[in-house]
């Protein structure tokens, strides 16, 4: 009896908090289909269903273009981080050479550097290279991260040398060893690095705000921030919510299918990083 009571309490409590986490998202979603005078109501259903807010968003800002920009940037960054990160990780884990120790120490050192330190100099670099107002300005400075290299290194160390030797005897060059043998054996590491890198890039606002001024090159979160702050929403609350929905939905859809991987990635990157 006592046991069921405590179980009921437990579920009641967990459900109450689950509502606390879900409700704001549901309110946002329903608000985006309501006219302004209904948005601020607590209830999720309105008798005045409207697509006006989405019309406004699509009419005012190049949101599809921004979606595409975000996708190009996040995918490019994820690809380069995985490709180059695994190459360097392999060099540190599986090849005995003099520089490996120094490089590892250097990597760990750069991981401790707060980004505030290099934010301004990095901006001036991007200006010097002439890649402001250019998606390269978002991709190049993020094309590799020390964390990803270290994570690949940690994982590659656990792969038995015999497998690599066997591949070499079969005549594989080092690059083929990496991409045909080591990386396929390291799916968890690739998934972790991939998800974390993609999300970080997709959700970043500060760097795009600094580098991109042309609205056709803005990333999705940047464009929406500018839309809300810059007054183009003309205080239409529903439109602001509609823009937020468009920003949140792609990630939430992917998340609902692969939430296990997402959570696992954060746990392993948190624990190791």
């Amino acid at each position: 009896m006592k046991k069921t009571l405590s179980a009921v309490l437990k579920y009641f409590f967990l459900t109450a908090f689950a509502v606390g986490f879900l409700y704001p998202f549901l309110w946002m979603l329903s608000g985006s289909f309501k006219p302004d005078f209904d948005v601020m109501k607590l209830g999720l259903f309105s008798s005045h269903f409207t697509l006006f807010n989405y019309d406004l968003v699509f009419g005012r800002i190049p949101i599809l273009r921004a979606f595409l920009n975000s996708l190009i940037v996040a995918m490019s960054v994820t690809a380069t981080v995985i490709v180059f990160g695994s190459m360097v990780g392999y060099a540190l884990a599986k090849i005995k050479w003099k520089g490996a120790g120094t490089l590892t120490v250097f990597l760990l050192f750069t991981m401790t550097l707060p980004f505030q330190l290099t934010l301004i100099p990095l901006y001036t670099m991007v200006v010097k290279f002439g890649i402001t107002d250019n998606l390269l300005g978002l991709i190049l400075p993020n094309m590799l991260t020390a964390v990803s290299v270290i994570m690949f290194r940690q994982f590659f160390v656990t792969i038995p040398d015999s497998l690599i030797e066997a591949a070499r005897i079969d005549g594989c060059g080092e690059l083929r060893v990496i991409f045909n043998v080591v990386v396929p054996l390291s799916k968890p590491a690739v998934v972790t690095v991939g998800i974390i890198t993609f999300l970080t890039s997709w959700n970043d606002v500060l760097w795009p705000l600094i580098v991109i001024r042309n609205r056709y090159l803005m990333t999705l979160p940047q464009l929406i921030t500018v839309f809300v702050l810059g007054g183009q929403a003309e205080s239409h609350l529903g439109a602001e919510l509609a823009a937020s929905v468009l920003l949140a939905v792609p990630i939430l859809v992917i998340y609902s299918f692969f939430q296990r991987y997402f959570i696992q990635s954060f746990v392993s990157s948190g624990v190791k990083g």
Binding site: F25, L247, Y255, Q259
Partner: peptide, 15 residues
């Protein structure tokens, strides 16, 4: 509980 972690800070802030 994990959902807000993956969503952009911009979304959370606007809401």
């Amino acid at each position: 509980y994990f959902m807000p972690v993956v969503v952009s800070g911009v979304v959370v802030t606007i809401v």
